[in-house]
Amino acid sequence: MTTPKRILTTPSPSTSPPSPPKQWHVHLTLDLIMTVLCRSILHPFIAWIIVLCLRAQATPYDHPAFLIASGYATLLTIIDIAFMISDRIAFGADRTVDLGEEVIVITGGASGLGRLVAQIYGLRGVSVAVLDVADEEDVRLRGWEEVGGVEYYQCDIGVRGEVERAARRIEEDLGTPTVLVNCAAARINGQPLLSLSAETFQKTIQTNLLAVVHTCQVFLPQMLSTENGGTIVNVSSVLGQLCAAGLADYSASKAGLSALHRTLEAELRVSGNGDKVKTVLVESGQISTPLFKFIKTPSSFFAPVLEPSRVAQEIVSMIDQGRSGVIRLPTFAMLANWYAVLPAGLQRIGRYLSGIDLAVPAESAQTDQPGQENLRVEKK
Protein backbone atom coordinates (compact mmCIF):
# COMPACT_ATOMS: atom_id res chain seq x y z
CA MET A 1 0.00 0.00 0.00
CA THR A 2 1.09 3.51 -0.68
CA THR A 3 1.39 5.99 2.15
CA PRO A 4 -1.82 7.81 3.04
CA LYS A 5 -2.57 11.09 1.32
CA ARG A 6 -4.72 13.90 2.55
CA ILE A 7 -8.17 13.76 1.02
CA LEU A 8 -9.31 16.93 -0.74
CA THR A 9 -12.91 17.80 -0.16
CA THR A 10 -14.01 21.26 -1.23
CA PRO A 11 -14.65 21.58 -4.99
CA SER A 12 -13.17 24.53 -6.82
CA PRO A 13 -15.61 27.08 -8.25
CA SER A 14 -17.21 25.96 -11.50
CA THR A 15 -17.04 28.12 -14.62
CA SER A 16 -20.07 26.47 -16.25
CA PRO A 17 -23.11 28.71 -16.82
CA PRO A 18 -25.82 28.53 -14.14
CA SER A 19 -28.73 26.20 -14.82
CA PRO A 20 -32.11 27.82 -15.53
CA PRO A 21 -34.34 28.26 -12.47
CA LYS A 22 -36.81 25.48 -11.79
CA GLN A 23 -40.55 26.04 -11.93
CA TRP A 24 -42.20 26.44 -8.53
CA HIS A 25 -44.22 23.23 -8.84
CA VAL A 26 -41.03 21.17 -9.16
CA HIS A 27 -40.43 21.75 -5.46
CA LEU A 28 -43.92 20.49 -4.53
CA THR A 29 -43.33 16.86 -3.62
CA LEU A 30 -44.82 14.21 -1.38
CA ASP A 31 -41.79 14.64 0.88
CA LEU A 32 -42.48 18.35 1.32
CA ILE A 33 -46.14 17.73 2.14
CA MET A 34 -45.30 15.01 4.68
CA THR A 35 -42.60 17.19 6.28
CA VAL A 36 -45.07 20.04 6.75
CA LEU A 37 -47.72 17.71 8.18
CA CYS A 38 -45.31 15.96 10.55
CA ARG A 39 -44.13 19.30 11.90
CA SER A 40 -47.61 20.74 12.30
CA ILE A 41 -50.91 18.91 12.76
CA LEU A 42 -49.27 15.47 13.11
CA HIS A 43 -46.84 16.59 15.83
CA PRO A 44 -47.89 15.90 19.46
CA PHE A 45 -46.43 19.19 20.68
CA ILE A 46 -48.58 21.20 18.24
CA ALA A 47 -51.64 19.15 19.16
CA TRP A 48 -51.18 19.92 22.87
CA ILE A 49 -50.75 23.63 22.08
CA ILE A 50 -54.25 23.56 20.59
CA VAL A 51 -55.54 22.01 23.82
CA LEU A 52 -53.84 24.74 25.87
CA CYS A 53 -55.27 27.43 23.61
CA LEU A 54 -58.77 26.07 24.18
CA ARG A 55 -58.24 26.15 27.95
CA ALA A 56 -56.90 29.71 27.68
CA GLN A 57 -60.27 30.60 26.20
CA ALA A 58 -61.98 28.97 29.21
CA THR A 59 -63.42 26.19 27.03
CA PRO A 60 -65.25 23.73 29.34
CA TYR A 61 -63.65 20.30 29.76
CA ASP A 62 -66.80 18.63 28.46
CA HIS A 63 -67.04 20.80 25.36
CA PRO A 64 -66.84 18.71 22.12
CA ALA A 65 -63.98 20.85 20.77
CA PHE A 66 -61.91 20.30 23.92
CA LEU A 67 -62.69 16.56 24.00
CA ILE A 68 -61.71 16.12 20.34
CA ALA A 69 -58.52 18.16 20.69
CA SER A 70 -57.50 16.32 23.87
CA GLY A 71 -58.23 12.93 22.37
CA TYR A 72 -56.27 13.76 19.21
CA ALA A 73 -53.27 15.04 21.18
CA THR A 74 -53.35 11.96 23.41
CA LEU A 75 -53.48 9.65 20.37
CA LEU A 76 -50.47 11.32 18.74
CA THR A 77 -48.54 11.14 22.02
CA ILE A 78 -49.29 7.44 22.45
CA ILE A 79 -48.18 6.73 18.86
CA ASP A 80 -44.97 8.72 19.37
CA ILE A 81 -44.16 6.88 22.61
CA ALA A 82 -44.99 3.54 20.99
CA PHE A 83 -42.45 4.20 18.21
CA MET A 84 -39.78 5.12 20.76
CA ILE A 85 -40.45 1.93 22.73
CA SER A 86 -40.39 -0.10 19.51
CA ASP A 87 -36.99 1.35 18.54
CA ARG A 88 -35.60 0.65 22.01
CA ILE A 89 -36.79 -2.97 21.87
CA ALA A 90 -35.48 -3.43 18.32
CA PHE A 91 -32.13 -1.65 18.59
CA GLY A 92 -31.29 -1.42 22.29
CA ALA A 93 -29.70 1.47 24.15
CA ASP A 94 -27.79 4.16 22.27
CA ARG A 95 -24.01 3.97 22.15
CA THR A 96 -22.04 6.78 23.78
CA VAL A 97 -20.16 8.68 21.06
CA ASP A 98 -17.07 10.79 21.74
CA LEU A 99 -16.00 12.36 18.44
CA GLY A 100 -12.59 13.11 19.90
CA GLU A 101 -11.97 9.36 20.22
CA GLU A 102 -13.69 8.15 17.05
CA VAL A 103 -11.85 6.96 13.93
CA ILE A 104 -14.17 6.87 10.93
CA VAL A 105 -13.51 4.73 7.86
CA ILE A 106 -15.46 5.67 4.71
CA THR A 107 -15.35 3.59 1.54
CA GLY A 108 -15.99 5.37 -1.75
CA GLY A 109 -15.19 8.62 -0.02
CA ALA A 110 -13.46 10.36 -2.93
CA SER A 111 -16.79 11.42 -4.44
CA GLY A 112 -20.52 11.67 -3.90
CA LEU A 113 -22.17 10.75 -0.63
CA GLY A 114 -19.01 9.30 0.90
CA ARG A 115 -17.10 12.51 0.22
CA LEU A 116 -19.78 14.60 1.94
CA VAL A 117 -19.71 12.44 5.06
CA ALA A 118 -15.91 12.65 5.11
CA GLN A 119 -16.08 16.42 4.64
CA ILE A 120 -18.56 16.88 7.51
CA TYR A 121 -16.43 14.94 9.98
CA GLY A 122 -13.15 16.35 8.69
CA LEU A 123 -14.34 19.91 9.27
CA ARG A 124 -15.35 18.89 12.81
CA GLY A 125 -11.84 17.67 13.54
CA VAL A 126 -12.65 13.95 13.61
CA SER A 127 -10.06 11.41 12.39
CA VAL A 128 -11.31 10.09 9.03
CA ALA A 129 -9.82 7.48 6.70
CA VAL A 130 -11.15 7.43 3.14
CA LEU A 131 -10.78 4.27 1.06
CA ASP A 132 -11.28 4.62 -2.68
CA VAL A 133 -10.00 3.09 -5.89
CA ALA A 134 -9.19 6.50 -7.44
CA ASP A 135 -5.48 7.29 -7.55
CA GLU A 136 -3.94 10.38 -6.00
CA GLU A 137 -3.55 12.19 -9.30
CA ASP A 138 -7.24 11.81 -10.15
CA VAL A 139 -8.15 13.22 -6.76
CA ARG A 140 -5.76 16.15 -7.15
CA LEU A 141 -7.10 17.03 -10.61
CA ARG A 142 -10.55 17.56 -9.15
CA GLY A 143 -9.26 20.76 -7.58
CA TRP A 144 -10.30 20.10 -3.98
CA GLU A 145 -8.76 21.85 -1.03
CA GLU A 146 -7.19 19.93 1.80
CA VAL A 147 -9.14 19.37 4.99
CA GLY A 148 -7.18 18.44 8.09
CA GLY A 149 -7.82 15.16 9.87
CA VAL A 150 -8.89 13.26 6.73
CA GLU A 151 -6.45 10.73 5.26
CA TYR A 152 -6.76 9.12 1.83
CA TYR A 153 -5.83 5.47 1.21
CA GLN A 154 -5.96 4.18 -2.33
CA CYS A 155 -7.60 0.79 -1.97
CA ASP A 156 -9.74 -1.56 -4.04
CA ILE A 157 -12.12 -2.80 -1.33
CA GLY A 158 -13.19 -5.65 -3.60
CA VAL A 159 -9.77 -7.22 -2.93
CA ARG A 160 -9.46 -8.64 0.58
CA GLY A 161 -5.70 -8.25 0.79
CA GLU A 162 -5.85 -4.53 0.03
CA VAL A 163 -8.53 -3.99 2.69
CA GLU A 164 -6.40 -5.79 5.29
CA ARG A 165 -3.31 -3.74 4.41
CA ALA A 166 -5.30 -0.51 4.54
CA ALA A 167 -6.71 -1.49 7.94
CA ARG A 168 -3.22 -1.99 9.35
CA ARG A 169 -2.08 1.40 8.07
CA ILE A 170 -5.18 3.14 9.45
CA GLU A 171 -4.57 1.69 12.90
CA GLU A 172 -0.94 2.85 12.78
CA ASP A 173 -1.79 6.34 11.49
CA LEU A 174 -5.08 7.21 13.19
CA GLY A 175 -5.88 4.54 15.77
CA THR A 176 -8.42 1.74 16.01
CA PRO A 177 -11.39 2.31 13.65
CA THR A 178 -14.71 2.71 15.47
CA VAL A 179 -17.07 3.73 12.64
CA LEU A 180 -17.34 2.10 9.19
CA VAL A 181 -19.44 3.76 6.46
CA ASN A 182 -19.76 1.60 3.33
CA CYS A 183 -20.60 4.02 0.49
CA ALA A 184 -18.59 2.58 -2.41
CA ALA A 185 -20.37 1.08 -5.39
CA ALA A 186 -19.76 0.10 -8.98
CA ARG A 187 -21.19 2.37 -11.65
CA ILE A 188 -24.65 1.63 -13.08
CA ASN A 189 -24.58 -0.47 -16.26
CA GLY A 190 -28.24 0.07 -17.17
CA GLN A 191 -28.47 -3.00 -19.40
CA PRO A 192 -31.04 -5.79 -19.66
CA LEU A 193 -30.00 -9.06 -18.06
CA LEU A 194 -29.51 -10.75 -21.44
CA SER A 195 -27.07 -8.00 -22.45
CA LEU A 196 -24.96 -8.18 -19.28
CA SER A 197 -21.80 -10.20 -19.46
CA ALA A 198 -21.04 -12.55 -16.60
CA GLU A 199 -17.89 -10.53 -15.87
CA THR A 200 -19.86 -7.28 -15.60
CA PHE A 201 -22.43 -8.85 -13.28
CA GLN A 202 -19.68 -10.38 -11.15
CA LYS A 203 -17.86 -7.04 -10.91
CA THR A 204 -21.00 -5.32 -9.61
CA ILE A 205 -21.54 -8.03 -7.01
CA GLN A 206 -17.89 -7.88 -5.99
CA THR A 207 -17.93 -4.11 -5.44
CA ASN A 208 -21.44 -3.63 -4.03
CA LEU A 209 -21.72 -6.77 -1.91
CA LEU A 210 -18.54 -8.80 -1.50
CA ALA A 211 -16.52 -5.68 -0.69
CA VAL A 212 -18.85 -4.99 2.26
CA VAL A 213 -18.20 -8.53 3.48
CA HIS A 214 -14.48 -7.73 3.38
CA THR A 215 -14.75 -4.44 5.25
CA CYS A 216 -17.11 -5.81 7.91
CA GLN A 217 -14.95 -8.87 8.55
CA VAL A 218 -11.78 -6.77 8.75
CA PHE A 219 -13.00 -3.78 10.79
CA LEU A 220 -15.68 -5.32 13.04
CA PRO A 221 -13.19 -7.27 15.22
CA GLN A 222 -11.32 -3.99 15.80
CA MET A 223 -14.53 -2.30 16.95
CA LEU A 224 -15.33 -5.17 19.29
CA SER A 225 -11.86 -4.87 20.82
CA THR A 226 -12.46 -1.26 21.87
CA GLU A 227 -14.16 -0.30 25.12
CA ASN A 228 -16.79 1.89 23.45
CA GLY A 229 -17.58 -0.31 20.45
CA GLY A 230 -18.50 1.26 17.14
CA THR A 231 -21.02 1.79 14.34
CA ILE A 232 -21.39 0.17 10.93
CA VAL A 233 -23.34 2.02 8.22
CA ASN A 234 -24.26 0.19 5.02
CA VAL A 235 -25.69 2.29 2.20
CA SER A 236 -28.07 0.08 0.24
CA SER A 237 -30.99 1.10 -1.99
CA VAL A 238 -34.77 0.84 -2.22
CA LEU A 239 -34.13 -0.75 -5.62
CA GLY A 240 -33.04 -3.84 -3.72
CA GLN A 241 -36.76 -4.35 -3.08
CA LEU A 242 -38.44 -2.69 -6.08
CA CYS A 243 -36.02 -4.11 -8.70
CA ALA A 244 -36.44 -1.86 -11.73
CA ALA A 245 -35.97 -3.17 -15.27
CA GLY A 246 -32.46 -2.65 -16.62
CA LEU A 247 -30.83 -2.79 -13.18
CA ALA A 248 -30.54 -6.53 -12.61
CA ASP A 249 -26.97 -6.49 -11.32
CA TYR A 250 -27.44 -3.37 -9.19
CA SER A 251 -30.75 -4.52 -7.66
CA ALA A 252 -29.41 -8.00 -6.94
CA SER A 253 -26.32 -6.58 -5.21
CA LYS A 254 -28.37 -4.16 -3.10
CA ALA A 255 -30.91 -6.81 -2.12
CA GLY A 256 -27.98 -8.95 -1.00
CA LEU A 257 -26.45 -6.03 0.90
CA SER A 258 -29.69 -5.36 2.80
CA ALA A 259 -29.94 -9.06 3.68
CA LEU A 260 -26.29 -9.12 4.76
CA HIS A 261 -26.85 -6.08 6.99
CA ARG A 262 -29.88 -7.59 8.71
CA THR A 263 -28.03 -10.85 9.27
CA LEU A 264 -25.08 -8.98 10.79
CA GLU A 265 -27.47 -7.07 13.05
CA ALA A 266 -29.04 -10.34 14.22
CA GLU A 267 -25.65 -11.93 14.88
CA LEU A 268 -24.49 -8.96 16.94
CA ARG A 269 -27.69 -9.09 18.97
CA VAL A 270 -27.47 -12.85 19.57
CA SER A 271 -23.81 -12.59 20.57
CA GLY A 272 -24.60 -9.88 23.11
CA ASN A 273 -22.77 -7.16 21.19
CA GLY A 274 -25.84 -5.37 19.83
CA ASP A 275 -25.42 -2.48 22.27
CA LYS A 276 -21.68 -2.26 21.69
CA VAL A 277 -21.69 -2.11 17.88
CA LYS A 278 -24.60 -0.23 16.34
CA THR A 279 -25.77 -0.83 12.78
CA VAL A 280 -27.42 1.61 10.37
CA LEU A 281 -28.96 0.54 7.05
CA VAL A 282 -29.63 3.20 4.42
CA GLU A 283 -32.26 2.25 1.83
CA SER A 284 -32.69 5.42 -0.18
CA GLY A 285 -34.22 6.39 -3.46
CA GLN A 286 -32.30 8.05 -6.30
CA ILE A 287 -29.53 10.39 -5.16
CA SER A 288 -28.19 13.21 -7.30
CA THR A 289 -24.72 11.75 -7.85
CA PRO A 290 -22.74 10.63 -10.93
CA LEU A 291 -23.88 7.06 -10.30
CA PHE A 292 -27.43 7.79 -11.47
CA LYS A 293 -26.65 10.62 -13.84
CA PHE A 294 -28.37 9.08 -16.88
CA ILE A 295 -31.45 7.78 -15.02
CA LYS A 296 -34.60 9.91 -14.97
CA THR A 297 -36.77 9.71 -11.87
CA PRO A 298 -40.16 8.09 -12.68
CA SER A 299 -42.03 10.79 -10.72
CA SER A 300 -40.61 14.00 -9.32
CA PHE A 301 -43.63 14.24 -6.99
CA PHE A 302 -43.62 10.75 -5.45
CA ALA A 303 -39.94 9.92 -6.00
CA PRO A 304 -37.93 13.17 -5.99
CA VAL A 305 -34.19 12.95 -6.56
CA LEU A 306 -32.41 13.33 -3.22
CA GLU A 307 -29.62 15.79 -2.62
CA PRO A 308 -26.55 13.96 -1.23
CA SER A 309 -26.35 16.47 1.63
CA ARG A 310 -29.75 15.36 2.94
CA VAL A 311 -28.74 11.71 3.10
CA ALA A 312 -25.33 12.60 4.55
CA GLN A 313 -26.98 14.62 7.33
CA GLU A 314 -29.19 11.66 8.27
CA ILE A 315 -26.19 9.32 8.38
CA VAL A 316 -24.12 11.73 10.47
CA SER A 317 -27.04 12.25 12.87
CA MET A 318 -27.43 8.50 13.46
CA ILE A 319 -23.70 8.06 14.03
CA ASP A 320 -23.48 11.04 16.39
CA GLN A 321 -26.41 9.77 18.46
CA GLY A 322 -24.95 6.26 18.66
CA ARG A 323 -28.16 4.76 17.33
CA SER A 324 -29.03 1.73 15.26
CA GLY A 325 -31.83 1.90 12.72
CA VAL A 326 -32.92 2.15 9.12
CA ILE A 327 -32.83 5.35 7.05
CA ARG A 328 -35.37 5.39 4.23
CA LEU A 329 -35.61 8.46 2.02
CA PRO A 330 -37.64 9.88 0.35
CA THR A 331 -41.13 9.14 1.73
CA PHE A 332 -42.01 6.48 -0.83
CA ALA A 333 -39.02 4.41 0.31
CA MET A 334 -40.72 3.97 3.68
CA LEU A 335 -43.65 2.31 1.88
CA ALA A 336 -41.51 -0.20 -0.05
CA ASN A 337 -42.05 -2.94 2.55
CA TRP A 338 -45.81 -2.52 2.20
CA TYR A 339 -45.51 -2.92 -1.56
CA ALA A 340 -44.30 -6.48 -1.09
CA VAL A 341 -47.53 -7.56 0.67
CA LEU A 342 -49.87 -6.21 -2.02
CA PRO A 343 -51.56 -8.67 -4.39
CA ALA A 344 -49.52 -9.28 -7.54
CA GLY A 345 -52.08 -7.48 -9.70
CA LEU A 346 -51.92 -4.32 -7.61
CA GLN A 347 -48.13 -4.47 -7.67
CA ARG A 348 -48.20 -4.59 -11.49
CA ILE A 349 -50.60 -1.65 -11.65
CA GLY A 350 -48.41 0.30 -9.23
CA ARG A 351 -45.31 -0.32 -11.32
CA TYR A 352 -47.12 0.80 -14.48
CA LEU A 353 -48.44 4.00 -12.90
CA SER A 354 -45.09 4.85 -11.31
CA GLY A 355 -43.11 4.27 -14.50
CA ILE A 356 -40.30 2.62 -12.53
CA ASP A 357 -39.54 0.12 -15.29
CA LEU A 358 -39.01 2.93 -17.81
CA ALA A 359 -36.60 4.91 -15.63
CA VAL A 360 -33.53 3.37 -17.29
CA PRO A 361 -33.38 4.64 -20.89
CA ALA A 362 -32.82 2.02 -23.55
CA GLU A 363 -29.84 3.90 -24.96
CA SER A 364 -28.02 3.50 -21.64
CA ALA A 365 -26.85 0.11 -22.87
CA GLN A 366 -24.16 1.95 -24.85
CA THR A 367 -22.98 3.24 -21.50
CA ASP A 368 -19.26 2.71 -21.25
CA GLN A 369 -17.89 6.13 -20.47
CA PRO A 370 -14.24 6.98 -21.13
CA GLY A 371 -12.08 6.47 -18.10
CA GLN A 372 -14.93 4.93 -16.10
CA GLU A 373 -14.36 1.23 -16.78
CA ASN A 374 -12.84 0.53 -13.37
CA LEU A 375 -14.21 3.48 -11.44
CA ARG A 376 -16.14 2.74 -8.30
CA VAL A 377 -18.10 5.77 -7.30
CA GLU A 378 -20.27 6.71 -4.40
CA LYS A 379 -23.31 4.68 -4.18
CA LYS A 380 -26.89 5.40 -4.16
Results as ranks from 00 to 15, higher is better:
146 E>D: 14
265 E>P: 02
13 P>T: 06
65 A>L: 14
140 R>C: 02
284 S>G: 03
224 L>G: 00
128 V>S: 00
39 R>D: 10
33 I>C: 01
308 P>Y: 00
209 L>T: 07
99 L>P: 08
109 G>N: 04
348 R>G: 11
311 V>C: 03
191 Q>K: 13
344 A>I: 15
333 A>C: 13
351 R>M: 14
281 L>W: 05
271 S>F: 06
64 P>S: 11
348 R>T: 09
182 N>E: 02
80 D>V: 06
119 Q>C: 06
199 E>A: 13
271 S>Q: 05
118 A>P: 10
222 Q>Y: 01
158 G>Q: 09
266 A>T: 14
57 Q>A: 12
258 S>H: 11
369 Q>P: 00
122 G>L: 11
110 A>N: 03
373 E>F: 12
137 E>M: 12
71 G>F: 09
178 T>P: 05
31 D>E: 12
354 S>F: 15
191 Q>T: 05
257 L>T: 13
126 V>A: 04
66 F>R: 12
341 V>E: 11
166 A>Y: 06
214 H>A: 08
167 A>T: 07
129 A>R: 09
54 L>D: 01
338 W>E: 04
216 C>A: 02
2 T>F: 02
200 T>H: 09
47 A>G: 01
206 Q>F: 00
315 I>Y: 03
1 M>A: 02
283 E>D: 07
217 Q>D: 05
105 V>W: 02
231 T>S: 08
208 N>R: 06
262 R>H: 11
97 V>D: 02
352 Y>H: 12
325 G>W: 01
134 A>E: 08
343 P>V: 14
211 A>N: 04
354 S>M: 15
62 D>T: 07
110 A>F: 03
274 G>F: 00
206 Q>S: 09
223 M>Q: 01
181 V>R: 01
355 G>E: 10
344 A>E: 15
165 R>H: 07
223 M>L: 07
97 V>K: 07
195 S>R: 09
272 G>A: 04
120 I>M: 13
72 Y>I: 09
135 D>F: 01
279 T>F: 02
290 P>L: 07
308 P>Q: 00
55 R>H: 08
35 T>G: 00
62 D>C: 09
219 F>A: 08
35 T>I: 07
227 E>K: 10
259 A>Q: 12
255 A>R: 14
39 R>A: 05
166 A>L: 10
206 Q>K: 08
282 V>D: 05
155 C>R: 10
287 I>A: 02
373 E>Y: 11
107 T>F: 03
354 S>I: 15
132 D>P: 00
343 P>D: 14
96 T>L: 01
239 L>D: 01
37 L>S: 03
323 R>A: 13
277 V>P: 05
43 H>R: 02
220 L>T: 02
134 A>D: 12
100 G>R: 14
334 M>A: 03
29 T>S: 04
82 A>D: 00
46 I>A: 13
141 L>H: 08
192 P>A: 03
46 I>M: 12
180 L>P: 04
327 I>W: 04
1 M>W: 01
